[in-house]
Write a protein that binds this DNA or RNA. Sequence first.
DNA 1: ACCTTTCTAGCACAGCTGTGATAGAAAGAG
DNA 2: CTCTTTCTATCACAGCTGTGCTAGAAAGGT
Lengths: 208, 208
Amino acid sequence: MPKRVDPEERRRLVVDALFRVVVRDGLQRASLRAVADEAGLNIGSLRHYFASQAELMDFAMRSMVDRVTGRLLRRIEEAGDLGGLAAGERLRLVTGLLEELLPLDDRRMAEVTVFLDFSAASRTNPAFRDLAHETAAGTRALVHRVLSRLDAAGALRPGLDLDSEVRRLTALVDGLGLTAVLHPDLLDARACAGALRAHLRELAAPED
Amino acid sequence: MPKRVDPEERRRLVVDALFRVVVRDGLQRASLRAVADEAGLNIGSLRHYFASQAELMDFAMRSMVDRVTGRLLRRIEEAGDLGGLAAGERLRLVTGLLEELLPLDDRRMAEVTVFLDFSAASRTNPAFRDLAHETAAGTRALVHRVLSRLDAAGALRPGLDLDSEVRRLTALVDGLGLTAVLHPDLLDARACAGALRAHLRELAAPED
DNA sequence: ACCTTTCTAGCACAGCTGTGATAGAAAGAG
DNA sequence: CTCTTTCTATCACAGCTGTGCTAGAAAGGT
């Protein structure tokens, strides 16, 4: 039944090569030829799996977003509604969740790097606009979900405006990722995670 | 004494055209031909004022950074050391200063937009690396200066770690600018400024 | 008048891009 | 075996890029 090569695996191989090129040389230089070379394929072979550059880019970006989304959903499921947990445990779960969005190791560094190039390109590339907007809105929705569950569990400092705090925390995560990717010497992984933790600690209710 | 055209003005004209192209079409599509067309010049004329593309880009980016830096320095001078001012006045000065870095009107929106494309490109373009790093470090130094002056004036909440707060506020400003530029429907100017003000208010000492 | 410098305009070339088209190899089905 | 589908490989072409080069116009100094 199966032919010699698994097409799905082939596509993954190409997408991985694309990500390596983007991380190393930037989205701008991720031409079909460069990606084919990186994947060890002939450009003709590559084009057998992706009819056009647009299709490759679209598939690749969607793959990455799906992968990260999957991880986030898994963590959300693990966390449940955060009710009936100790404050420390709650903080740990929420921190771990949002840390998926920070470049704290090689894998996440690569993801955030690709995502940054991709987001910047989406501003003037109509082919990327929808997905980029989707993910930005998704990130905010995720932060909203996290903070409102904390709020429902009574874990937030009283007197906070939820929407305002959602915007602030989302911007913080975005900004930390941006600097950590572009200027890792100015913000290493430890400082990056530390800033997030400090912020979450400040949002938490006092006592206990 | 003066020839027919002022070379300096000509260069400014070209740089302005470059910025318009970058804002409209992205840095990627800001080719010499596109910039020359936008400026209403022949590419040959453009190349009389900028020998190479690298020279144009370097000059343009440096111009923009210098312009913003100038504005910031002027505001710093106006603000003085923040000592002996009412808390409200201090907050007003500091907010106005940091708002120079947010895309709150067309001018700043264009600046932050260009700066974002430029920063993203600097990750893989050696020609941009130094200046991009300089400006990122400069932004952090500015935030450090602001917060430490507030601290010296006793205007900060006690118990704050200065360096940690500098990282947090810098990331917040970066993140707000990022989203406001890429997804203005998710974060308009009012929300952007509001988030900054809320954060600064939270850093401020209570009482007064 | 002439000369020099400044400025504008354009051509040509090599290098890259995505993509259409073609052709042959590989591999399984009948 | 033959036939078909899948896959690999390559050529060709138009379109863009930065840049070297040339030539003429424009303008001011002498």
